[in-house]
Design a protein around this nucleic acid. Structure first.
Length: 328
DNA sequence: ATGTGAG
DNA sequence: ACTCACATA
């Protein structure tokens, strides 16, 4: 999974326009720190992505909501020349490419990247010479810069899954463990490993009770067994770190472990299995039928519905059940 | 309390 | 879209 989101893609006759608009949007956000222009370009891209027919001129596009004279002009230029002067310049610009590079380091976002570039730190090499400017998370991102961009083969995740299940079962057999994300959707490779755990003693209703030890204990075991080698962050419910798999030539991986209250487990699994687009569509369907669906609860008229399986959620909102592999 | 970053 | 963790002030 990459850090940047690329939304509008398939069966979109205006895909090429959307592409350059999104590139411009990212430039405005990451380099100029102008969130308004960013939103304007994103809006325009979404409008064009939803438009059923091929746009033939800027004039035609300008009739659409969110597209004004400036974007219309760019569409004309793109139609006539196949490219944009402005984008060509941006792609050549030193600071702009440096910011795009630095932003690929986990923990470095647009703000930090800009700060670094302003201090004339523009490459991974420069970063290594200026570790003092980085926080804990960013240091790990730098250390494993290459590793974290490598995809994780399905078989490796499977081995890690089995390992975690075995070790945790030994710790406390009442834990339930599910590996979600694209792995659960059956993909041959994934960007990271997303593990959801729950325990019968942890319920969203017993509120104030601190249950963080349930997550910490798991992390401790996996640390002692050398699966977890570094911790990026460790909160009460969410935990991210890197793990090394000895048999895989020591590539560091991102492992994300979340503790979910038992009564919200299936909603969590649904949410973290994705895909993003699938979730979006399913939530939209829920809304149309008077439900609200999020990561934690399914509600009818504000009242939470009791869920005891993933199928339950589909049943309640009248959405045809889809196997994880059909949610791509 | 606020900004940042991740997912 | 929304929430969480962390680092500052």
């Amino acid at each position: 999974m990459s850090k940047r989101k690329t939304p509008s893609s398939e069966n979109n006759t205006n895909y090429d326009f959307c592409e350059f608009l999104i590139e411009l949007a990212n430039y405005e956000r990451n380099v100029n720190r102008n969130i308004y222009k960013y939103n304007a370009y994103r809006n325009a891209a979404n409008t064009l992505a939803a438009y059923p027919t091929r746009i033939k001129s800027g004039e035609e596009a300008q009739k659409l909501k969110g597209i004004g004279a400036k974007i219309a002009k760019k569409i004309d230029e793109f139609l006539q020349t196949g490219k944009l002067q402005k984008l060509e310049k941006i792609r050549e610009d030193d600071d702009s490419t440096a910011i795009n590079l630095l932003t690929r380091v986990s923990g470095i976002g647009p703000a930090k990247a800009k700060e670094l570039v302003d201090a004339n730190i523009k490459s991974i090499e420069d970063l290594k010479k200026n570790k003092g400017k980085l926080n804990h998370h960013q240091l790990i991102g730098l250390k494993y810069f290459e590793d974290f961009e490598k995809k994780i083969p399905r078989e490796e995740i499977k081995r890690i899954e089995d390992f975690i299940k075995t070790e945790i079962d030994e710790l406390d057999s009442e834990y339930k463990i599910t590996v979600c994300g694209s792995y659960r959707r059956g993909k041959a490779e994934s960007g990271d490993i997303d593990v959801l755990i729950t325990h019968p003693s942890y319920n969203s209703k017993d509120g104030s009770k601190k249950k963080s030890h349930l997550l910490k204990n798991v992390v401790e075991v996996l640390k002692s067994k050398k699966l977890i080698t570094e911790t990026i962050s460790l909160g009460d419910v969410k935990f991210m770190k890197t793990c090394k798999n000895h048999s895989e030539g020591c590539v560091a991986r991102r492992l994300d472990i979340r503790l979910i209250p038992q009564d919200q487990y299936y909603l969590g699994i649904l949410y973290f299995t994705g895909s993003d687009l699938f979730n979006k569509n399913m939530r939209a369907h829920a809304l149309e039928h008077g439900f609200t669906l999020n990561e934690y609860t399914l509600r009818v008229a504000g009242e939470p519905v009791k869920i005891t399986s993933e199928e339950d959620i589909f049943d309640y909102i009248g959405y045809p059940y889809k196997q994880p592999s059909e949610r791509n």
